[in-house]
Amino acid sequence: MATTTPTKTKKMAMHEALNQALREEMLRDPQVLVLGEEVGLYNGVHYVTRGLYSEFGPERVMDTPISEESFVGVGVGMALMGYRPVVEMMRMDFSLRAMDQIYNHMAKIHYMSGGDLKVPMVLRGPEGPGPNPGLTAQHGQQLTLLFAHCPGLRVVTPSNQYDAKGMLKAAIRCDDPVVFLEPGPLNNKQGDVGEDDYLVPLDQAEIRREGTDVTLIGYGASVALCLQAARELERSGVSAAVVDMRSLRPLDMAPAYASVERTNRAVVVEYAWQSYGPGAEIVARLMRDAFWNLEAPVLRVSGKETPLPYAANLEELSKPQVEEIVSAAQQTLK
């Protein structure tokens, strides 16, 4: 997909960047429509669809009942007919209700039809413990793995506001079904966003920071933790590179391999539970393809393997910490 570089940028929250992407794509293509809970009249619980209902009306911005399984299916059906539905999950946790539609229909119809049918739809929503604290066990989960596990889906997650806009636009124009995971902790965070029409590719990882001693690999909200850890490591004389995976299916390992060739060490960082997660897949690929460049075992820093607890101290403890990344990085250098 062609990418363009915007000429002007403006600071805005990630939800505003996503809102711009939706608005621009709806203006550009009348087949694009939005559906989900409270996306219309209410303007979206996380503000992503703000203003779209009044601008585009109830035919293109549809408030749905609390019927996740079936309104994801409605999205699949409309996509089969040539529309480009963007289906919002108020929180990605609620997609668990819709897993049959996601796994068995959205992901597979293109393949099962021998390529005859296409499902150009986007399933999007916030995941993980944020933007606000106290989301607890059923609302703040990081379920990235469930989507990334399923062939047929593209699974992407932006780590910053600029990518959020460009990647959502690319996702809407993509003919494949895309699961677009919005890092909850970043929803209200500000950053530079291109003002004009630009796309960011859906299948390319990116080196966010060059370094020579250790490579920190993250995706979504964990990239910010890696960057913070890299700044702290710099103070103690360690040069850390940061790789933003951006897409989890397909998984673009090339930038990570290139960085590890220089640093010979890696730490994979994620909010998700560790066992069997995307980080496990990244480590397995490093083992296979970068083994001879590694000087130390690849370490991991993850969300703790418990349901998200409520108490403030436990909640904080359950998330991946910058200090844990710093100490893992130092351990690879011992």
Partner: peptide, 29 residues
């Protein structure tokens, strides 16, 4: 979010449970 909480501070507003009172939650979904 305290220890003396109905769910030991781990559940929060939506997740109160109490076996003795035959109260089985408190569900966020």
């Amino acid at each position: 979010g305290r220890r003396a909480g109905v769910s030991k501070g781990k559940g929060g507003s939506m997740h109160m449970y109490n076996q003795e009172k035959h109260f089985l939650g408190g569900d966020g979904i």
